[in-house]
Write a protein that binds this DNA or RNA. Sequence first.
DNA 1: AGATACATGTAAAATGTTACATGATTTT
DNA 2: AAAATCATGTAACATTTTACATGTATCT
Lengths: 192, 192
Amino acid sequence: MHLVACMMRGMALEHAILVSLAEKSASGYDLARRFDKSIGFFWKATHQQIYKVLARMEGDEWIAATPVEEPGRPAKKVYALTPTGRAELARWTTEPTPIETLRSEFAVKIRGMNFGDRGAVVVDIARQRERHVDRLAYYEADCTKHFPDPTALGDADLPAYLVLRGGIRTEQTYIDWCDEMLTALGHEKETR
Amino acid sequence: MHLVACMMRGMALEHAILVSLAEKSASGYDLARRFDKSIGFFWKATHQQIYKVLARMEGDEWIAATPVEEPGRPAKKVYALTPTGRAELARWTTEPTPIETLRSEFAVKIRGMNFGDRGAVVVDIARQRERHVDRLAYYEADCTKHFPDPTALGDADLPAYLVLRGGIRTEQTYIDWCDEMLTALGHEKETR
DNA sequence: AGATACATGTAAAATGTTACATGATTTT
DNA sequence: AAAATCATGTAACATTTTACATGTATCT
Protein backbone atom coordinates (compact mmCIF):
# COMPACT_ATOMS: atom_id res chain seq x y z
CA MET A 1 0.00 0.00 0.00
CA HIS A 2 1.14 3.50 -0.76
CA LEU A 3 1.61 6.24 1.79
CA VAL A 4 -0.45 9.33 1.21
CA ALA A 5 2.08 11.89 0.03
CA CYS A 6 0.21 15.05 0.91
CA MET A 7 -0.56 14.93 4.60
CA MET A 8 -3.31 17.10 5.96
CA ARG A 9 -1.86 20.11 7.67
CA GLY A 10 -3.12 23.02 9.69
CA MET A 11 -2.78 25.20 6.64
CA ALA A 12 -2.53 28.25 8.76
CA LEU A 13 0.74 30.16 8.70
CA GLU A 14 1.43 28.73 5.22
CA HIS A 15 -1.49 30.61 3.75
CA ALA A 16 -0.76 33.83 5.56
CA ILE A 17 2.73 33.66 4.05
CA LEU A 18 1.33 32.86 0.59
CA VAL A 19 -0.91 35.94 0.80
CA SER A 20 1.95 38.12 1.95
CA LEU A 21 4.30 36.87 -0.77
CA ALA A 22 1.56 37.24 -3.38
CA GLU A 23 1.36 40.91 -2.43
CA LYS A 24 5.14 41.27 -2.67
CA SER A 25 8.13 38.91 -2.72
CA ALA A 26 10.20 39.00 0.46
CA SER A 27 12.91 37.36 2.55
CA GLY A 28 12.22 35.55 5.83
CA TYR A 29 13.42 38.62 7.65
CA ASP A 30 11.10 40.90 5.66
CA LEU A 31 8.19 38.58 6.39
CA ALA A 32 9.02 38.57 10.10
CA ARG A 33 8.71 42.36 10.08
CA ARG A 34 5.42 42.21 8.18
CA PHE A 35 4.15 39.79 10.81
CA ASP A 36 4.97 42.44 13.40
CA LYS A 37 2.65 44.90 11.66
CA SER A 38 0.08 44.84 8.77
CA ILE A 39 -0.52 41.08 8.35
CA GLY A 40 0.58 40.66 11.97
CA PHE A 41 -2.46 42.57 13.24
CA PHE A 42 -4.49 39.44 12.65
CA TRP A 43 -1.82 36.75 12.43
CA LYS A 44 1.32 36.68 14.57
CA ALA A 45 4.45 34.69 13.78
CA THR A 46 8.02 34.78 15.04
CA HIS A 47 11.03 34.64 12.72
CA GLN A 48 11.92 31.13 13.92
CA GLN A 49 8.51 29.87 12.93
CA ILE A 50 8.64 31.70 9.61
CA TYR A 51 12.04 30.26 8.60
CA LYS A 52 10.86 26.76 9.40
CA VAL A 53 7.63 27.04 7.42
CA LEU A 54 9.45 28.78 4.56
CA ALA A 55 11.80 25.78 4.28
CA ARG A 56 8.83 23.42 4.18
CA MET A 57 7.02 25.52 1.60
CA GLU A 58 10.16 25.61 -0.56
CA GLY A 59 10.32 21.81 -0.30
CA ASP A 60 6.70 21.62 -1.47
CA GLU A 61 7.59 24.01 -4.30
CA TRP A 62 4.98 26.54 -3.32
CA ILE A 63 7.70 29.17 -3.26
CA ALA A 64 11.17 29.58 -4.75
CA ALA A 65 14.13 31.54 -3.38
CA THR A 66 16.47 33.90 -5.23
CA PRO A 67 19.66 34.85 -3.40
CA VAL A 68 20.10 38.62 -3.29
CA GLU A 69 23.34 40.24 -2.26
CA GLU A 70 23.62 43.92 -1.65
CA PRO A 71 27.03 45.36 -0.72
CA GLY A 72 27.33 46.13 3.00
CA ARG A 73 24.47 43.78 3.86
CA PRO A 74 24.17 40.10 4.75
CA ALA A 75 23.01 38.02 1.82
CA LYS A 76 19.31 37.27 1.83
CA LYS A 77 16.98 34.86 0.14
CA VAL A 78 14.03 36.52 -1.51
CA TYR A 79 11.06 34.21 -1.87
CA ALA A 80 8.42 34.41 -4.59
CA LEU A 81 5.37 32.26 -5.34
CA THR A 82 5.72 29.49 -7.91
CA PRO A 83 2.78 28.60 -10.17
CA THR A 84 2.07 25.73 -7.74
CA GLY A 85 1.98 28.18 -4.84
CA ARG A 86 -0.32 30.52 -6.73
CA ALA A 87 -2.63 27.60 -7.53
CA GLU A 88 -2.67 26.52 -3.88
CA LEU A 89 -3.49 30.05 -2.76
CA ALA A 90 -6.33 30.26 -5.29
CA ARG A 91 -7.66 26.86 -4.20
CA TRP A 92 -7.57 27.93 -0.55
CA THR A 93 -9.71 31.01 -1.25
CA THR A 94 -12.52 28.74 -2.45
CA GLU A 95 -12.55 26.72 0.79
CA PRO A 96 -15.06 27.62 3.49
CA THR A 97 -13.17 29.08 6.45
CA PRO A 98 -13.64 27.16 9.70
CA ILE A 99 -15.62 29.18 12.20
CA GLU A 100 -13.33 31.12 14.50
CA THR A 101 -13.02 29.99 18.09
CA LEU A 102 -12.21 32.87 20.30
CA ARG A 103 -9.70 32.07 23.02
CA SER A 104 -9.48 34.78 25.61
CA GLU A 105 -7.45 34.45 28.77
CA PHE A 106 -8.78 37.86 29.71
CA ALA A 107 -12.37 36.60 29.63
CA VAL A 108 -11.38 33.59 31.74
CA LYS A 109 -9.84 35.95 34.28
CA ILE A 110 -12.97 38.13 34.41
CA ARG A 111 -15.01 35.02 35.02
CA GLY A 112 -12.66 33.98 37.84
CA MET A 113 -12.38 37.32 39.54
CA ASN A 114 -14.51 36.34 42.53
CA PHE A 115 -11.96 33.66 43.42
CA GLY A 116 -9.11 36.14 43.75
CA ASP A 117 -8.35 39.83 43.94
CA ARG A 118 -11.25 41.72 42.43
CA GLY A 119 -9.48 45.05 42.71
CA ALA A 120 -6.49 43.72 40.79
CA VAL A 121 -8.78 42.48 38.03
CA VAL A 122 -10.40 45.92 37.77
CA VAL A 123 -6.93 47.44 37.38
CA ASP A 124 -6.20 44.85 34.71
CA ILE A 125 -9.38 45.76 32.83
CA ALA A 126 -8.34 49.41 32.84
CA ARG A 127 -4.90 48.39 31.58
CA GLN A 128 -6.36 46.26 28.78
CA ARG A 129 -8.58 49.17 27.82
CA GLU A 130 -5.54 51.42 27.42
CA ARG A 131 -3.80 48.92 25.14
CA HIS A 132 -6.84 48.72 22.94
CA VAL A 133 -7.14 52.50 22.81
CA ASP A 134 -3.52 52.55 21.60
CA ARG A 135 -4.18 49.93 18.97
CA LEU A 136 -7.32 51.65 17.76
CA ALA A 137 -5.40 54.89 17.34
CA TYR A 138 -2.71 53.01 15.43
CA TYR A 139 -5.21 51.32 13.11
CA GLU A 140 -7.09 54.54 12.48
CA ALA A 141 -3.89 56.38 11.62
CA ASP A 142 -2.99 53.55 9.27
CA CYS A 143 -6.42 53.72 7.69
CA THR A 144 -6.27 57.47 7.14
CA LYS A 145 -2.77 57.17 5.71
CA HIS A 146 -3.37 54.35 3.27
CA PHE A 147 -7.02 54.94 2.44
CA PRO A 148 -7.68 58.69 2.70
CA ASP A 149 -10.83 58.37 0.60
CA PRO A 150 -12.63 55.09 1.36
CA THR A 151 -15.46 55.96 -1.06
CA ALA A 152 -13.03 55.85 -3.99
CA LEU A 153 -11.44 52.48 -3.31
CA GLY A 154 -10.39 50.27 -6.21
CA ASP A 155 -10.72 46.51 -6.29
CA ALA A 156 -7.01 46.13 -5.53
CA ASP A 157 -7.21 48.15 -2.29
CA LEU A 158 -10.53 46.89 -1.00
CA PRO A 159 -9.37 43.69 0.77
CA ALA A 160 -6.66 45.39 2.86
CA TYR A 161 -9.09 48.19 3.70
CA LEU A 162 -11.84 45.80 4.80
CA VAL A 163 -9.45 43.86 7.02
CA LEU A 164 -8.32 47.10 8.65
CA ARG A 165 -11.98 48.01 9.19
CA GLY A 166 -12.37 44.69 10.99
CA GLY A 167 -9.44 45.55 13.23
CA ILE A 168 -10.92 48.98 13.99
CA ARG A 169 -14.32 47.50 14.83
CA THR A 170 -12.72 44.84 17.02
CA GLU A 171 -10.70 47.35 19.03
CA GLN A 172 -13.67 49.69 19.47
CA THR A 173 -15.76 46.76 20.72
CA TYR A 174 -13.07 45.79 23.21
CA ILE A 175 -12.93 49.34 24.55
CA ASP A 176 -16.71 49.55 24.88
CA TRP A 177 -16.78 46.21 26.68
CA CYS A 178 -14.08 47.35 29.11
CA ASP A 179 -16.09 50.50 29.78
CA GLU A 180 -19.22 48.49 30.47
CA MET A 181 -17.29 46.29 32.90
CA LEU A 182 -15.60 49.18 34.67
CA THR A 183 -18.98 50.88 35.15
CA ALA A 184 -20.62 47.68 36.39
CA LEU A 185 -17.76 47.05 38.79
CA GLY A 186 -18.20 50.45 40.37
CA HIS A 187 -14.97 51.89 39.08
CA GLU A 188 -16.57 55.25 38.35
CA LYS A 189 -17.66 55.82 41.94
CA GLU A 190 -14.10 55.28 43.12
CA THR A 191 -12.38 57.58 40.65
CA ARG A 192 -14.76 60.51 40.62
CA MET B 1 23.71 23.35 40.11
CA HIS B 2 20.05 22.73 40.85
CA LEU B 3 17.34 22.43 38.29
CA VAL B 4 14.52 24.89 38.62
CA ALA B 5 11.64 22.78 39.87
CA CYS B 6 8.74 24.89 38.70
CA MET B 7 9.17 25.41 34.97
CA MET B 8 7.40 28.26 33.30
CA ARG B 9 4.34 26.99 31.55
CA GLY B 10 1.73 28.37 29.24
CA MET B 11 -0.61 28.64 32.20
CA ALA B 12 -3.58 28.71 29.95
CA LEU B 13 -5.92 25.75 30.10
CA GLU B 14 -4.84 25.14 33.70
CA HIS B 15 -6.39 28.39 34.82
CA ALA B 16 -9.55 27.94 32.83
CA ILE B 17 -9.96 24.58 34.58
CA LEU B 18 -9.20 26.12 37.99
CA VAL B 19 -11.93 28.72 37.40
CA SER B 20 -14.40 26.09 36.27
CA LEU B 21 -13.66 23.80 39.23
CA ALA B 22 -13.84 26.76 41.62
CA GLU B 23 -17.37 27.36 40.39
CA LYS B 24 -18.25 23.68 40.84
CA SER B 25 -16.31 20.44 41.26
CA ALA B 26 -16.45 18.15 38.24
CA SER B 27 -15.06 15.13 36.45
CA GLY B 28 -12.98 15.30 33.28
CA TYR B 29 -16.04 14.38 31.31
CA ASP B 30 -18.12 17.12 32.97
CA LEU B 31 -15.38 19.65 32.22
CA ALA B 32 -15.24 18.54 28.59
CA ARG B 33 -18.95 19.32 28.31
CA ARG B 34 -18.50 22.71 29.99
CA PHE B 35 -15.76 23.46 27.48
CA ASP B 36 -18.33 22.79 24.76
CA LYS B 37 -20.56 25.55 26.14
CA SER B 38 -20.36 28.30 28.87
CA ILE B 39 -16.59 28.43 29.53
CA GLY B 40 -16.08 27.02 26.04
CA PHE B 41 -17.48 30.18 24.42
CA PHE B 42 -14.15 31.84 25.11
CA TRP B 43 -11.87 28.87 25.71
CA LYS B 44 -12.07 25.60 23.77
CA ALA B 45 -10.56 22.31 24.93
CA THR B 46 -11.03 18.69 23.92
CA HIS B 47 -11.44 15.88 26.41
CA GLN B 48 -8.01 14.46 25.54
CA GLN B 49 -6.38 17.74 26.42
CA ILE B 50 -8.42 18.08 29.58
CA TYR B 51 -7.53 14.61 30.93
CA LYS B 52 -3.85 15.26 30.35
CA VAL B 53 -3.83 18.66 32.05
CA LEU B 54 -5.99 17.29 34.87
CA ALA B 55 -3.34 14.59 35.54
CA ARG B 56 -0.62 17.24 35.63
CA MET B 57 -2.62 19.48 37.93
CA GLU B 58 -3.27 16.58 40.26
CA GLY B 59 0.49 15.90 40.30
CA ASP B 60 1.07 19.54 41.25
CA GLU B 61 -1.59 19.19 43.95
CA TRP B 62 -3.69 22.02 42.59
CA ILE B 63 -6.64 19.65 42.52
CA ALA B 64 -7.61 16.37 44.19
CA ALA B 65 -9.85 13.59 42.88
CA THR B 66 -12.60 11.73 44.69
CA PRO B 67 -13.84 8.55 43.01
CA VAL B 68 -17.61 8.61 42.63
CA GLU B 69 -19.57 5.52 41.72
CA GLU B 70 -23.21 5.67 40.84
CA PRO B 71 -25.02 2.45 40.04
CA GLY B 72 -25.57 1.98 36.32
CA ARG B 73 -22.82 4.45 35.43
CA PRO B 74 -19.10 4.19 34.78
CA ALA B 75 -17.06 5.28 37.79
CA LYS B 76 -15.84 8.84 37.58
CA LYS B 77 -13.25 10.96 39.31
CA VAL B 78 -14.63 14.21 40.65
CA TYR B 79 -11.98 16.88 40.97
CA ALA B 80 -12.00 19.71 43.49
CA LEU B 81 -9.54 22.50 44.19
CA THR B 82 -7.01 22.01 46.98
CA PRO B 83 -5.90 24.97 49.11
CA THR B 84 -2.79 25.11 46.87
CA GLY B 85 -5.02 25.29 43.79
CA ARG B 86 -7.17 28.00 45.34
CA ALA B 87 -4.01 29.98 46.19
CA GLU B 88 -2.70 29.60 42.65
CA LEU B 89 -6.02 30.78 41.23
CA ALA B 90 -6.01 33.81 43.53
CA ARG B 91 -2.40 34.60 42.62
CA TRP B 92 -3.21 34.38 38.92
CA THR B 93 -6.04 36.93 39.23
CA THR B 94 -3.48 39.53 40.40
CA GLU B 95 -1.29 39.02 37.35
CA PRO B 96 -1.64 41.42 34.42
CA THR B 97 -3.16 39.51 31.50
CA PRO B 98 -0.99 39.47 28.38
CA ILE B 99 -2.55 41.50 25.61
CA GLU B 100 -4.60 39.31 23.32
CA THR B 101 -3.31 38.60 19.85
CA LEU B 102 -6.12 38.00 17.48
CA ARG B 103 -5.47 35.22 15.00
CA SER B 104 -8.01 35.16 12.26
CA GLU B 105 -7.76 32.88 9.26
CA PHE B 106 -10.90 34.56 7.99
CA ALA B 107 -9.16 37.95 7.91
CA VAL B 108 -6.18 36.42 6.11
CA LYS B 109 -8.55 35.01 3.51
CA ILE B 110 -10.27 38.38 3.00
CA ARG B 111 -6.89 39.95 2.49
CA GLY B 112 -5.99 37.28 -0.05
CA MET B 113 -9.23 37.30 -1.99
CA ASN B 114 -7.77 39.05 -5.03
CA PHE B 115 -5.40 36.12 -5.55
CA GLY B 116 -8.20 33.60 -5.88
CA ASP B 117 -11.94 33.31 -6.29
CA ARG B 118 -13.52 36.54 -5.13
CA GLY B 119 -17.05 35.21 -5.52
CA ALA B 120 -16.26 32.21 -3.33
CA VAL B 121 -14.91 34.52 -0.65
CA VAL B 122 -18.10 36.59 -0.75
CA VAL B 123 -20.11 33.39 -0.26
CA ASP B 124 -17.81 32.53 2.64
CA ILE B 125 -18.42 35.94 4.23
CA ALA B 126 -22.17 35.38 4.03
CA ARG B 127 -21.70 31.94 5.58
CA GLN B 128 -19.59 33.31 8.44
CA ARG B 129 -22.24 35.97 9.01
CA GLU B 130 -24.90 33.28 9.44
CA ARG B 131 -22.82 31.42 12.02
CA HIS B 132 -22.34 34.56 14.04
CA VAL B 133 -26.05 35.36 13.84
CA ASP B 134 -26.69 31.88 15.30
CA ARG B 135 -24.16 32.38 18.07
CA LEU B 136 -25.53 35.80 18.92
CA ALA B 137 -29.02 34.36 19.24
CA TYR B 138 -27.66 31.61 21.45
CA TYR B 139 -25.80 34.03 23.72
CA GLU B 140 -28.78 36.35 23.98
CA ALA B 141 -31.09 33.50 24.93
CA ASP B 142 -28.55 32.41 27.53
CA CYS B 143 -28.37 35.93 28.87
CA THR B 144 -32.12 36.33 29.16
CA LYS B 145 -32.42 32.94 30.81
CA HIS B 146 -29.70 33.35 33.43
CA PHE B 147 -29.84 37.10 33.96
CA PRO B 148 -33.44 38.24 33.38
CA ASP B 149 -32.83 41.46 35.28
CA PRO B 150 -29.29 42.76 34.65
CA THR B 151 -29.91 45.85 36.79
CA ALA B 152 -30.31 43.66 39.86
CA LEU B 153 -27.17 41.60 39.57
CA GLY B 154 -25.33 40.51 42.68
CA ASP B 155 -21.56 40.33 43.03
CA ALA B 156 -21.64 36.57 42.54
CA ASP B 157 -23.40 36.77 39.16
CA LEU B 158 -21.63 39.80 37.75
CA PRO B 159 -18.51 38.09 36.30
CA ALA B 160 -20.40 35.47 34.28
CA TYR B 161 -22.81 38.17 33.07
CA LEU B 162 -19.99 40.49 31.96
CA VAL B 163 -18.26 37.71 30.06
CA LEU B 164 -21.50 36.90 28.27
CA ARG B 165 -21.86 40.58 27.42
CA GLY B 166 -18.40 40.40 25.86
CA GLY B 167 -19.53 37.45 23.77
CA ILE B 168 -22.66 39.30 22.64
CA ARG B 169 -20.68 42.41 21.69
CA THR B 170 -18.12 40.30 19.82
CA GLU B 171 -20.75 38.48 17.77
CA GLN B 172 -22.63 41.70 16.95
CA THR B 173 -19.36 43.28 15.79
CA TYR B 174 -18.59 40.31 13.58
CA ILE B 175 -22.04 40.53 11.97
CA ASP B 176 -21.70 44.28 11.38
CA TRP B 177 -18.28 43.77 9.85
CA CYS B 178 -19.60 41.06 7.51
CA ASP B 179 -22.42 43.40 6.47
CA GLU B 180 -19.94 46.19 5.75
CA MET B 181 -17.87 43.80 3.62
CA LEU B 182 -20.84 42.40 1.73
CA THR B 183 -22.01 45.91 0.91
CA ALA B 184 -18.55 47.03 -0.17
CA LEU B 185 -18.16 43.93 -2.34
CA GLY B 186 -21.34 44.71 -4.20
CA HIS B 187 -23.31 41.81 -2.82
CA GLU B 188 -26.47 43.89 -2.45
CA LYS B 189 -26.61 44.81 -6.11
CA GLU B 190 -26.51 41.16 -7.09
CA THR B 191 -29.19 39.91 -4.72
CA ARG B 192 -31.81 42.67 -5.13
C1' DA C 1 -29.98 -3.49 16.42
C1' DG C 2 -27.86 0.84 16.14
C1' DA C 3 -27.05 5.38 17.84
C1' DT C 4 -26.05 8.37 21.48
C1' DA C 5 -24.51 9.52 26.15
C1' DC C 6 -21.40 8.35 29.82
C1' DA C 7 -16.54 7.81 31.18
C1' DT C 8 -11.37 7.73 30.71
C1' DG C 9 -7.51 7.47 28.66
C1' DT C 10 -2.82 6.66 25.11
C1' DA C 11 -0.11 7.82 20.98
C1' DA C 12 1.33 10.28 17.11
C1' DA C 13 1.66 14.30 14.53
C1' DA C 14 1.47 19.12 13.85
C1' DT C 15 2.09 23.67 15.54
C1' DG C 16 3.90 27.17 18.28
C1' DT C 17 7.13 29.28 21.83
C1' DT C 18 11.52 30.16 24.02
C1' DA C 19 16.28 29.79 24.28
C1' DC C 20 20.47 29.49 21.96
C1' DA C 21 23.75 30.64 18.16
C1' DT C 22 26.35 33.55 14.83
C1' DG C 23 28.08 37.45 12.45
C1' DA C 24 28.21 42.00 9.77
C1' DT C 25 26.88 46.89 9.68
C1' DT C 26 24.96 51.08 11.23
C1' DT C 27 23.56 54.28 14.63
C1' DT C 28 24.07 56.61 19.20
C1' DA D 1 32.09 51.21 22.92
C1' DA D 2 27.55 49.66 23.19
C1' DA D 3 23.14 49.08 21.18
C1' DA D 4 20.17 48.38 17.40
C1' DT D 5 19.21 46.66 12.73
C1' DC D 6 19.99 43.27 9.21
C1' DA D 7 19.98 38.31 8.25
C1' DT D 8 19.39 33.24 9.01
C1' DG D 9 18.99 29.53 11.34
C1' DT D 10 18.98 25.06 15.22
C1' DA D 11 17.30 22.81 19.41
C1' DA D 12 14.41 22.01 23.17
C1' DC D 13 10.13 22.31 24.99
C1' DA D 14 5.15 23.06 25.32
C1' DT D 15 0.72 22.95 23.39
C1' DT D 16 -2.84 21.47 20.44
C1' DT D 17 -5.10 18.42 17.24
C1' DT D 18 -6.31 14.01 15.38
C1' DA D 19 -6.53 9.26 15.55
C1' DC D 20 -6.88 5.23 18.18
C1' DA D 21 -8.73 2.45 22.08
C1' DT D 22 -12.20 0.51 25.35
C1' DG D 23 -16.43 -0.48 27.68
C1' DT D 24 -21.30 0.21 29.86
C1' DA D 25 -25.95 1.99 29.69
C1' DT D 26 -29.72 4.14 27.78
C1' DC D 27 -32.65 5.71 24.16
C1' DT D 28 -35.02 5.06 19.48
